[in-house]
Design a protein around this nucleic acid. Structure first.
Lengths: 337, 337
DNA sequence: AGTTAGCACTCCCACCCTTAGAGTGCTAAA
DNA sequence: TTTAGCACTCTAAGGGTGGGAGTGCTAACT
């Protein structure tokens, strides 16, 4: 065998063995596991070379080698044997996702829980981002004499509600007038377009009617803002314990805003983001495996799993891939009509 | 000084010192801190007695004493100096709670976040329980040709929505019929009463109309169920790290159902539940300080903080008390009309 | 050039032992 | 009932030791 090919084989074997056992891998053990036909000295020479080139390191002089971030990266890019999820597996996933899933939110919560169950790591699911989403319809529900709820229905299936109050008596008739007038203005508008100037221009167009509805307009704007914000559903936080950085990671994960920002920056395809490749220092020694579900064929919200760098990437990728596909199907069914 | 009184003083001093430093307290150190006018030998005798009676223990032979669960209990019941929150403090709390608080849910989320900030422990807030709550009103919002959203407005200020689908075309006219018919039946009914038999009886009363609305009725029932379930808002999970039982506690806290059950069982007044007094084994070495906010004057949802047994009970109790009062005020303002 | 056996070397880890210090319980006297 | 005195116990920290794993290097071999 070519020396170069053997080195690749050795690197893969080190990564795989370390992923499985968590123990540094020595030259002798390696020969057995990889079924190599060379002596341990040869393997040692190769390992020295791989160390020099930054793919593996020794925790200390007389220990075996463990992969570096670069080593994992090489392995994921070149040596990964991703087996697609079986038909039964896929059916199981679809079933689990469908349980009580009557809104995009609950579907995504299911996805997060399911991923934790399947992977034993912390899992996330974000709601579809708002970039391309438009307001489909606005409704009002009276909740009291001076209070009502604005309901904004978005094209991506998300529905957001927001309460508001007024000084004057909110009769059903007034709400009906609101309904008519506001749907004329807002229906079909992109969520992003609903900002302060837009609201003001809209109000100006209503003439004297506009005096009655500032709080309603603000409620609508806020509901649109909420619909654009990606909510994050996570589960399995308990699995983090034991990680050296657990407290910093947990603190980070509690911050919806930072977390959502990080998740949004993940690649559009199914991929592993390893160690310092992550945008957050908190994750410098963790890996994120992520996939996106699609709405109308284009990548939308994120499903992700956070675990140690030492994780079973092949399995993670196939599970996330399949889950994202199933979520896409169910979500599009939910929206289509 | 009476020996008995001195023993009480010694116990309190041990608890306070241990709460502050986390170090076992020895006889000599105790004399200084408590300003006692007796020798260390006397203190040792008293400590031996307190140990025998189960108020304090030695981690090992040659260490000082630390309080037992019983010791903390005595301290909390008899020696606690609870200073009410200052006027500025109260104002700060009210301000923090009011930020973007336009629904009971967001108010309670604020409360949870605030408590974490103020106490540095994991904090919880539950929505008002449904025992005494009644349906105030039901509305329908069309969301698609075959889908709509049922909105159930409850007397405690909670609003729950639930989507549903039908085979036939859901015109606004049909929804209006639903609205009228269903409000006649459901308005004023207690949430608990909305169970399967009730739904069936109701359906029977609608005659041929009932054929159109099974999915709507189920949606209403589910929304009522949701409104009864106490949602739990928590924050500050990161603070748990370092606790020996952290993983088990975290796992438990992720389970909304078990957590809600535990919180509901907490006392109706402001109180500390110490160690094994808790209904969950996971909390055998933690303490829960809890208070309830009031709706219409009667204790309703729970605010709580979980920390180590070694916590500053006096401060926790005053903070929780004040926060619960402020939540009560704001919540009742929110509902009243 | 690439491979191999042999070997000295390094370093970790688990173990034991020692020591200093803190705090105790007991005893006998005040 | 309180106190001084003292022997005793136990922990935590430090240091020394030996075994073991795994290495890198060298020199010989293909």
């Amino acid at each position: 065998m070519e020396p170069a090919a053997r080195k690749k084989q050795i690197l893969s074997a080190i990564v795989e063995s370390y992923i499985q056992t968590g123990e540094p891998v020595g030259s002798k053990a390696l020969i057995q596991e990889a079924g190599l036909k060379v002596s341990s000295a040869t393997v040692r020479n190769d390992m020295a070379d791989l160390t020099e080139r930054g793919y593996i390191v020794q925790p200390h002089t007389s220990a075996g080698r463990i992969p570096t971030q670069r080593g994992y990266r090489y392995y994921v890019d070149n040596a990964l044997d991703v087996k697609p999820v079986t038909a039964q597996g896929r059916e199981y996933i679809t079933d689990a996702l469908s349980q009580n899933a009557d809104s995009p939110e609950s579907l995504l919560q299911n996805a997060s829980n399911l991923l934790t169950r399947l992977t034993d790591y912390v899992a996330f699911a974000t709601t579809p981002g708002g970039e391309e989403s438009r307001i489909r319809k606005i409704s009002f529900v009276p909740t009291g004499a001076h209070a009502a709820m604005a309901v904004v229905i978005v094209s991506n299936g998300i529905i957001k509600t927001k309460l508001f109050r007024c000084e004057f008596l909110l009769t059903p008739e007034i709400l009906q007038v609101f309904d008519k007038a506001l749907n004329d203005v807002f229906a079909g508008v992109r969520l992003e377009a609903v900002n302060r100037p837009f609201i003001q221009t809209a109000a100006a167009g209503f003439g004297e009617l506009s005096l009655l509805m500032p709080s309603a307009l603000i409620a609508i704007k806020e509901a649109c803002d909420l619909a654009r914000v990606v909510s994050v559903y996570h589960s399995g936080l308990g699995r983090l314990i034991g990680d050296a950085q657990a407290d910093r990671i947990l603190e980070f994960l509690q911050n919806q805003h930072d977390l959502a920002a990080m998740l949004e920056r993940l690649p559009l395809n199914t991929a592993a983001t390893i160690g310092k490749e992550n945008s957050r220092v908190e994750l410098a020694y963790s890996s994120v495996v992520s996939a996106r579900y699609k709405i109308d064929g284009s990548p939308s919200g994120v499903l992700a799993v956070i675990g140690p760098m030492r994780m079973d990437y092949a399995r993670m990728i196939s599970v996330l891939n399949c889950t994202a596909e199933c979520v896409s199907e169910l979500l599009n069914e939910m929206i289509d009509y």
